[in-house]
Structure formats: C-alpha cells, structure tokens
C-alpha cells in the first residue's frame, strides 16, 4: 500500500477552487473584526461602565469555548432566527455567510485581547507629551497612540490571522465548499482520505506561510522608527521565524507599576 499520487494531483487541481473561499472567509472576518477589536479594547482600557462587563463576558465566553461549539450554535440558531425575520428565504442563504458570522465573532474576541495589550504597551508619557504640545486627548490618541499600538500589535495580529486561517478549515461543517470540503468529497469516492488530507495540508501550509510573509513585510515596513541607527537594514526575513501567540499578558501588573512610577 502506498500513496496514490495520481489521485493527489487530481485533488490538488479540484481543491484549489476552495482556496478563494478560504481566503474570502479569512479576509471578511479580519476586516470586520479589526476595528471592532480596537473598539472593544478601548472599552476595556477606559473601563466604560456596563459595556466593559459585556465585553469581558463576551471575550471570556468566546475564548473559553471550542470553535466547533461556536460553529454548531451559530449554524443551528441563526437559520431559525432568520426564518422568524425573513421567512423561508433564510434557508436558501449561502452558508458562507454563517462562516463569516462565526469567524468574525471569534476573531473579535482574539483581537480585543491583542489590542488591549498593544495599547497598554504604549507608554503613558506619549499621551502626556501630546497633551503638553496642546493636542486634545482624541488627537493624541489617533495620531500618536494608535499608530504605535497597531505596529506593536502586528506580530499578534499575525498570530490571530494564522489562528483564523486554521480554524476556517472547519467551515466544511457548515457545508461551505472550502478546501477541506472539496478534498473530503473527492476522497469519499475511493476512500483515499490520506492523500486528500495531505494535499489540503500543503495548501494550508502555503496559505499560512504566505500570510506570515506578508505580515513580516508589513512589520518591516512600518517599524522603521524602531530601528536604531547602527543596525543596517538587510532583507533577512525568515519564514521559519516562530512567534508563539502571546495573548495572555499580565497587564494589570504593568499598569500599577506605571502609575507608581508616575508619582515622582
């Protein structure tokens, strides 16, 4: 028994049609959840009454439950919910919309934590300096704080994106025709599952490495201000760079340390 390479080539050809679907899910989820993530992070940082509790609850719930449970809940609850609102048309909705919903809801929670820790890494003095040259707090936030926070968040946004790409491989459960779904159907004819999944694996590796390279370039481009003068800027990115998600940051400690320092 060995691998059926002809079949693998065939799967590779058909499954590639699923790549745009996967990318679409990832991009839609990312683009919607990025601004909402910033907003939620601000709600947490500025401790906005009422809302803070809701955001905290939401993040904890989403991060504490498996994506598969979230998929099953959304996929079972939303159609009947929509049915009540728009009638029978609800059942003919393209399932990819359910994928958008699940993965957006999921990414919002991840990105809220990412931005919360990123915003807290920006030194309090940056805001104070902004105020002391006469800016309004809002102006200082948009022009000074947020750009720095976004850049320092880039590695963790990359992690969140990778996480999202990988999770999107579960969209087939909602009968979305993504890479995994197509390969699975192909494999079912002759029970060539191993071959099919090896091909899918390669596709995911390519997509993930592609995303990682893009984020590396973004980081390189945007963090020009962090480079010290002595270092030369050779092109030495490395696709095997490993940065494990560092989403748990003990921010409370950092916060109190900072306020202590401020007292003279």
């Amino acid at each position: 028994m060995s691998l059926n390479t002809d079949f693998m080539v065939k799967v590779a050809q058909t499954a590639i049609q699923g790549v745009p679907v996967t990318l679409q899910i990832v991009l839609v989820a990312l683009l919607i959840s990025l601004p909402i993530g910033v907003l939620f992070a601000l709600i947490r940082i500025y401790r906005i009454k009422g809302l803070e509790l809701i955001v905290k609850f939401y993040v904890s719930l989403v991060r504490g439950t498996p994506i598969i449970a979230q998929i099953l809940i959304v996929y079972s609850a939303f159609p009947s919910l929509l049915n009540m609102m728009i009638g029978k048309a609800a059942f003919s909705i393209n399932p990819i919309y359910y994928a958008y919903i699940v993965f957006t809801l999921n990414s919002i929670a991840t990105l809220t934590e990412v931005f919360r820790s990123a915003l807290q890494t920006v030194d309090k003095g940056q805001m104070e300096a902004g105020l002391m040259v006469g800016m309004q707090p809002r102006q200082a936030f948009w022009r000074i704080i947020l750009p720095q926070a976004l850049i320092s968040a880039l590695p963790n946004i990359a992690n969140a994106t990778l996480y999202l790409i990988k999770n999107s491989s579960l969209a087939f459960i909602m009968s979305v025709k993504d890479i995994t779904a197509i390969a699975k159907t192909e494999a079912a004819f002759n029970y060539n599952f191993l071959e099919a999944y090896l091909v899918v694996w390669v596709y995911y590796l390519i997509i993930c490495y592609g995303a990682e390279i893009i984020f590396n370039l973004l980081e390189r481009y945007f963090s020009k201000y962090r480079r010290s003068a002595k270092r030369t800027t050779g092109f030495n990115w490395n696709p095997f760079s490993i940065k494990q998600p560092k989403l748990v940051v003990k921010t409370d400690l950092a916060e109190s340390e900072r306020t202590n320092n401020a007292h003279n």
Binding site: D123, G125, Q126, E128, A129, G130, L131, M132, G134, I144, P147, Q148, I151, Y225, R226
Partner: peptide
C-alpha cells in the same frame, strides 16, 4: 496647556515621528 511647554524626564518624544 497651550501656554506652557513641558520637558519630560524620559523625553517622551513621539516614537513614531522623526
């Protein structure tokens, strides 16, 4: 604030600006 200048102990230059 518009009539004072402030020089900080830790400089607090805007890191993302020249």
């Amino acid at each position: 604030r518009r009539n004072v200048g402030f020089v900080f102990q830790n400089y607090n230059l805007f890191n993302n600006k020249t």
